[in-house]
Design a protein around this nucleic acid. Structure first.
Lengths: 201, 201, 201, 201
DNA sequence: GCGTAAGCGAGACGGTACGTCTTGTCTTCTG
DNA sequence: CAGAAGACAAGACGTACCGTCTCGCTTACGC
C-alpha cells in the first residue's frame, strides 16, 4: 500500500479507463465483496502494479468508479424554493441508494471504510462532505427565508432527513421508495416548520 | 460454511465459552477486521473445526459475543410513559453505539452482513428485529394513548428516531452524545405530536 | 523460506510424491531454470504452501528428486580390484553426468547452490560427500594394497580423477564419452602407480 | 533481449563506465545472485534501456566487468621453459579463482551460462577459449621439446591440469592454495612426462 | 551552423513469480 | 470417540524485477 507518488503526467489514460471499467463490470457481476485487485487487473489487461501504483486499495478504485456518477445524479435542479429542492434531493438520494447497481456497492464501500481510515477519509471528502455541504446550504437558505425553524441545528435537520435512507439501505433493508422519501420529508418538515406556517396535511 | 448439524447436546461448554471469550478479547485488541478464525481458535486453545462446527462465519461468532450484552443494555425501564420510555431508549441506543468496545464492532458486523445474507438474516432476527419490535410497541402504545399522532406510520417514526444514530456511527462518525439523542427526539416529537399537545420547548 | 518445522509424521505421502513427480516432469520439459514453485504446485495439484512447508527452495525439491536415482546409478559393483572399481566409478559418473535427463539439472543445482548456502550444504551432504567418501575408500584400499602410490594425497587423486568430468559438463561442454573416462583414468594412473608397476600401455 | 544494433560511435562513455562500475560494486556488496539490472541502472544513474541497449543480459555486463582483469592476471611470463610456464599458469589460475572478489562471481557467471546459450557462447569465446588456447600452446610446445609425452591428447592434459581448480571452486569448495596447484602439476607431470625423463620426487 | 536523428535518464507499462496469509476441509493423534 | 492440532488445496495478497515502451532532453552528425 506504499505510494512512491509516480508522475501523474505519464499516467496511461488507456489503462486508467480500462481499470475503472473492469472494476465497474466485475462489481456488478460479482459484487464488491468478491472483487479482487487480481481480478480487476486481469480483466483490464493491466499489471497489478499499475493498480497499486495509482490506488491504495480496492475501495479507492471503486470510489473513483462511483463518485462521479453519483454526484451527477444527485445534482438538484434549483427550483427557487429551497424546501422543494431539499425534498427533491431526498428523492434523488433515495433513488440512487435504491439503484441496485449503486446502492449495495456504496454500502460496501462504507463498510470497508470502517476498517480503512484512508478510504474513510477519501469517501468523506469526495462523497459525503460535498453532498452534505449542499444539504446544509439548502437548509440554511430555507431557514433564512423563514421556511424552516431557525432554532434547530442545521446538521440535525440534515441527519434527520437523510439518515433514514442509509438506515434502510444498511440496517433494515426496507424499501427506499419515493413515498418513503416523501414521508420522511413531510414528517421532518412538520416538526421543523416555523410555528406560523406549520403544514397540517 | 457447511453445517453438518452436529448434536448440540454433546457440545463442549468449555470450548464454547473459550471461543466467545477469545473472540471478544481479540476483537477488542485488534478490531473486527483483523480478527481471524485461526486467531480465535489459537487463543481459545480450540481446533478450528470446533468453531466451524458451530458457527458459519466469523460474524456469527461475534454476533453471539455481542447480542446478549447489547440487548441487556437496551432494556428500557418501563416508566409508565411510553414517550419517556422511547426517549430513554434512544438515549441507551446512542450510549451503546458510542461505546467503543461495542459500537465499532457492531458497525463491522453490519458491514460484513452486507455481503453475507446468512449473517444479515441472523443479525436481523437476533438484534435488529427484537429492538425494533420494542420500539414499535412503544410507539403504538403512545399513539393509542394519544401522545403521538396516529396518522404517521409506526416504522417511519421508528426510522426517524433511530436512523440518525446509525448514520453518525457509520457515515459521518460525528459524536453520539446524549444531547444529540435528545435533539433527535425533540425534533421528531415536535413533528409527530398530536396537534393539541405539540411541545414547544 | 521460513520453516516452522511441521510434524513430519502427518506429512501427506500423496502430496509429497505428487510434488516430486511434477518437479521431475517439469524439469525435463522446461529445464531447471524455467521451473517454478508455482508451476510445480499447479501440476501437482497442491497448494504452494505445502511445498514451502517441506522444502526451503526449488533446489531442495530437485535435490530430493535426483539424489536417490543418482546414488543408485553410481553404486559400483565390488570386483575385488579397487583399481577396477575406481575405473568403473569414473565411467558411471561420466555416464550419469552425460545423461541429458540428469547432467544439466545437476549442473543447475550446483549453480543455484553457489548463491544458496543452505542448498550448497545439503547438496554436499547428500550427494558430494557420500560419493567422495566411496572414492576415498577405494583409493585408500588401492594404496594399502600397493596398487597406487601411497605418497599422494587421497583427495588429490580423487580430484584429479573426477574433476575433468565436471569441468567438461560445466565449462567446456565437451563430450563425456567412455573413452574420455578411460583416458583420464589411464593418465592419472600412470602418474600415481607405484614405480615398480607403472602401466605403460 | 532484442538488440536494435545501435550506433556504437554515439555510445556514451560516461554511462558505459558508470554501468560497469556500479555492476562491479554491487556484485561485491550483494553477490551476483542478488544483482539486478534495475539496481545497476539506479546506482549508475542510468536508464534501464541504456543497459539493455548494449548488453543482452546481466551476465554479459558482468562478463565485461571481469574478463579483462582476469586475463591480465593470468598472463604468464614467458620463462623459456614451457613446463615452468604451465606450472606458473596453474598457480595464477588458482589465485584468481581463489580471489573472493572474482572467483565466486565467475562461478556464478558459469552457472548463469548453463541456462543462457548466448552468455555461454560469449563466456567461452572471451574467457575460456583464449585461456585454453594458451594452455594448449604451452602443452604442445612442451611436447615438441620432448618435455611431455606426445602420445597424450593435448586437451586431456589441459583438462587434467585445470579441472581440479574449477572442481574445488564449484563442487567441493576446498581450498585453492598454491600447494594444491603444485600438487596437481606434480601428479599430472609424473604421469605425462616422457619415460626417459620421469621426475621421481 | 542548423535541423534532425540518435542516445540518454527516467520511469510507466504488461507480466511472472515470489513468499506469505487466510479460508474452510480433511486427517491424524491423543486424552 | 470427541476434539486439539494442524496439514491440506486454493487462491489473493502486496512486492520485486523483468524486458518493452514512451517521454522530453541533450548531444553531435550531415546537409
Amino acid at each position: 500500500m506504499v505510494q512512491r507518488t509516480p508522475n501523474p503526467q505519464r499516467r496511461s489514460a488507456r489503462s486508467h479507463a480500462a481499470i475503472l471499467k473492469a472494476a465497474y463490470e466485475l462489481c456488478q457481476q460479482q459484487g464488491y465483496a468478491r472483487l479482487t485487485i487480481e481480478g480487476i487487473a486481469a480483466r483490464a489487461g493491466v499489471g497489478k502494479q499499475t493498480i497499486y501504483r495509482w490506488w491504495p486499495s480496492k475501495g479507492a478504485v471503486l470510489l473513483d468508479v462511483f463518485v462521479d456518477q453519483i454526484l451527477a445524479r444527485l445534482d438538484a435542479a434549483d427550483t427557487g424554493s429551497p424546501l422543494d429542492d431539499l425534498r427533491r434531493r431526498v428523492h434523488t438520494t433515495a433513488e440512487v441508494l435504491a439503484d441496485t447497481t449503486i446502492g449495495p456497492h456504496i454500502a460496501s464501500l462504507l463498510v470497508d471504510a470502517q476498517a480503512d481510515p484512508a478510504l474513510a477519509k477519501e469517501l468523506h471528502e469526495r462523497l459525503v462532505a460535498p453532498a452534505r455541504a449542499q444539504h446544509r446550504e439548502l437548509i440554511r437558505t430555507a431557514q433564512d427565508r423563514g421556511e424552516l425553524r431557525a432554532d434547530i441545528d442545521v446538521d440535525l435537520i440534515a441527519d434527520t432527513l437523510f439518515a433514514p435512507l442509509w438506515f434502510r439501505l444498511l440496517v433494515t433493508k426496507a424499501e427506499l421508495s419515493p413515498d418513503f422519501a416523501d414521508s420522511i420529508v413531510d414528517t421532518v418538515m412538520s416538526g421543523t416548520a416555523p410555528a406560523q406556517a406549520r403544514p397540517r396535511r
